[in-house]
Amino acid sequence: MSLEALPTLREALEAHGLWAKKAFGQHFLLDLNITRKIARLAEVGDGDLVIEVGPGPGGLTRALLETGAQVIAVEKDERFRPLLEELAAAANGRLTLVFGDALTTDEAALAAGRPAHLVSNLPYNVGTPLLIKWLTGPWTPVSLTLMFQKEVAERIVAAPGSGAYGRLGVIAQAACDARPVMDAPARAFTPPPKVDSAVVRLEPRADRPSPQRLDALQKVTAAAFGQRRKMLRSSLKVMGGEALVTTAGLDPAARAEMVDVKGFLALADAWLASR
């Protein structure tokens, strides 16, 4: 059977008696117009390697396969194995299935030395920890085109001084050029979640900080935003306080929400130098 001859996603779900599990943060995208748009925004094509996390019934997977890409799909929910195996059989060797937890998956091993893109409609309950893993881990994808709850997407691209600005935005923007590329209303999903979603495109920066520097950035931002109402001299007291902030060239009376990414990298560098 070819991809074109497969039953619709809704028909496949009904045939296998599969429904979204709230505990897994699952909300299915069954509209191929939307999944095809995500695949276009990912800018992948013939022969490209794509790692997809949480394919569920395979709506986005189908759209990625239509581009000619080779897809490795990582799925935690074993209920989808029969349905995804049918899709793999129709994909003529271009779909590899991996059943396991994406939080512990070794993407470098999956890619086996090949450049790979990450494209996913991420499960809501693990979207943020997965992004942090990919931003700070030793393996770097060519690009990341990821759907999150809209609130999380706004935090990723937020600017200093905005209510959404926090450590997720600092880490994401230190490692990548990040921009929102698509909104997806709740009604686009089955079942509809209580919130809207959005797709963010992230491209690793040429000057992406080293793993050691990113680790320091995580520690500094955790302390600073953990007490975001306090001045840096107080929120960073356990890391050096006013002396650390002054060494980084920042105002000790500033608050975390007003410090840009460059400033946090300077704090991370100052902390590393003080150890």
Rank of each mutant, 00 (worst) to 15 (best):
G54F: 00
L272H: 01
L250K: 12
F148V: 14
L265N: 02
A111E: 11
A23Y: 00
E43M: 01
M258T: 15
A42W: 10
F99A: 13
G58A: 07
L267S: 09
Q26E: 05
G113M: 07
E43H: 07
A15D: 13
G163F: 05
L214I: 06
L83E: 04
L87A: 14
D77Q: 09
R81G: 10
K194I: 00
E11L: 01
K262T: 15
S162P: 00
V170E: 06
C176M: 10
A116D: 06
V98L: 10
T145V: 12
D31Y: 11
L29D: 00
G249M: 14
G47C: 00
E154G: 07
I132K: 14
S197R: 02
P204R: 00
R167A: 14
I72P: 04
A174P: 02
L236Y: 10
A273D: 13
V259N: 00
W139T: 05
K194N: 04
K133W: 06
G47R: 14
G166N: 07
R62A: 05
D77K: 06
A12R: 15
A206Q: 14
V238R: 15
A108T: 02
I171R: 04
S234K: 14
L272P: 06
L9I: 13
L244P: 10
P129I: 14
P209C: 11
V245H: 08
A186E: 06
L32V: 00
T104Y: 05
P160T: 10
A270G: 15
P204L: 02
L214N: 03
E14T: 10
K150Q: 11
E154W: 05
R233D: 01
T246N: 12
L122D: 02
V238H: 15
I132Y: 10
A222Q: 14
A268R: 03
N33C: 00
G249I: 13
D101N: 13
T128C: 08
P138K: 12
V181C: 04
D106F: 04
S197D: 03
G25R: 03
P180E: 12
R81I: 11
V152I: 11
W271V: 01
I51N: 08
A90N: 11
A159V: 02
K194S: 10
L214E: 02
R81N: 07
T190P: 02
L122A: 09
M1Q: 13
Q149E: 15
R275N: 09
I132V: 15
D260N: 15
R179V: 14
K150Y: 01
T136R: 10
E107G: 00
P193V: 10
L130F: 12
T145E: 07
P82R: 04
I51L: 13
P123K: 08
T8D: 11
R205D: 06
F24T: 00
I72C: 06
V181E: 05
